[in-house]
Amino acid sequence: MTNAPRRPIATALMRHAAGVMPSPEWGAAMQNELEAIEDDRVALNWAIGCVIAGYKERLNAMLQTRYFRSALAFLIVLLALREFFAPLLIFAYRMKYLGLAHFLGLRTAGDDYRRLIPIMDATPSWVILLWAAAGVLYLVALWQMLRRTGASYMLFFLGCVLDLAGVLAIRSIEASTGVTTEPIPMVRLAGFLLTFSVAFVLWRMTSRRMPAVN
């Protein structure tokens, strides 16, 4: 690229960056700095960096809104309930609370808990504990998020790992029994993507926290 188009591109990018930046003052600060950079190549790099900075700040501002935090909290509660679902169904089946098992079975693929009996019989207690622990960790992470403390994403991520370990364990049981808990693999994949996306968002929210002055 010759020098000629670099400056107009940098100027256009910079205008965009200033518009994206949540604070107009900071947008203007970045934009005016461009005028002081003589070298067009450096100016272009500067402008590209400012676009990135603008989107970072825009994203961080969005993550701190009450609506976004409420939606995220709701999502985490749903994910926690999902983790408690299988332990509760297995508990209901094993303790002969068949009414509850039937009720929960209506929420499974196939609408009948009896389809899952071979898996529920074969599932070891430690897998059930893994899921329950993942659910508890999600709820504790939610509590930490609401209190705006830094540990939320670590707890949530640990919950994701436990969840994943539980699913991997159940896969071998599914293979041995010939019964699948989730007939559509994409649904399971989408669930994991959603869970890890929440972990990422929690991490971003935490990394934006302000340093403390003691």
């Binding site: 604070s23 970045m30 790099n45 400012c50 700040e57 302000m210 340093p211």
Partner: peptide, 20 residues
């Protein structure tokens, strides 16, 4: 890089550690 520098400047100014 400016993409790293400005978010830090914003954060430090918000916290009262830098003045602009």
């Amino acid at each position: 890089q400016s993409g790293t520098l400005y978010p830090i400047l914003v954060r430090l100014c918000d916290q009262g550690l830098l003045e602009a």
